[in-house]
């Protein structure tokens, strides 16, 4: 049943957001700490527990893959409701701060990506360069 997959997805999101909210309270910040990430871990966990197998296979899986496929349309809607005009109103200072943060962060990606498994990352990079 499709609803089983959808229900599992909902349960994971609600549980994850709740844990993130509690984590935020515990460390004393007014923000949800990793709620969506934790929800995703719960879903991955559920997929690997035999007991929950029936929730993530057959028609039930369709309830999850549908929302996964709706992801890009939802992102397009999200873009359409951003406060773009507000960003423009911030003037040069806001723009410079935002652009500067992005440029420096981009530059750090190749450096930090090397932590852990340098050879594999390098191989994959080389592989894709060939495709281009």
């Amino acid at each position: 049943m499709i609803i089983y997959g959808v229900a599992l997805l909902s349960a994971c999101l609600v549980a994850g957001l709740f844990i993130g909210e509690v984590l935020g309270d515990l460390i004393g910040v007014q923000a949800n700490v990793g709620g969506v990430g934790i929800a995703m871990l719960l879903l991955i966990l559920a997929c690997n527990v035999p007991r929950f197998r029936f929730l993530v296979s057959g028609a039930s899986a369709g309830g999850i893959t549908f929302w996964s496929a709706m992801y890009i349309p939802i992102v397009v809607a999200m873009a359409a409701r951003q406060n773009v005009a507000g960003a423009m109103d911030g003037g040069i200072l806001a723009l410079a701060a935002g652009v500067g943060a992005v440029v420096v962060s981009f530059a750090l990606i190749p450096l930090i990506s090397r932590i852990g498994s340098a050879p594999v990352a390098a191989d994959e990079r080389a592989g894709v360069a060939d495709d281009d």
Binding site: M40, L41, L43, A61, F66, S68, I74
Partner: peptide
């Protein structure tokens, strides 16, 4: 909701 679903 959709982001979590992509974790599937």
């Amino acid at each position: 909701f959709a982001i979590v679903a992509t974790g599937f």
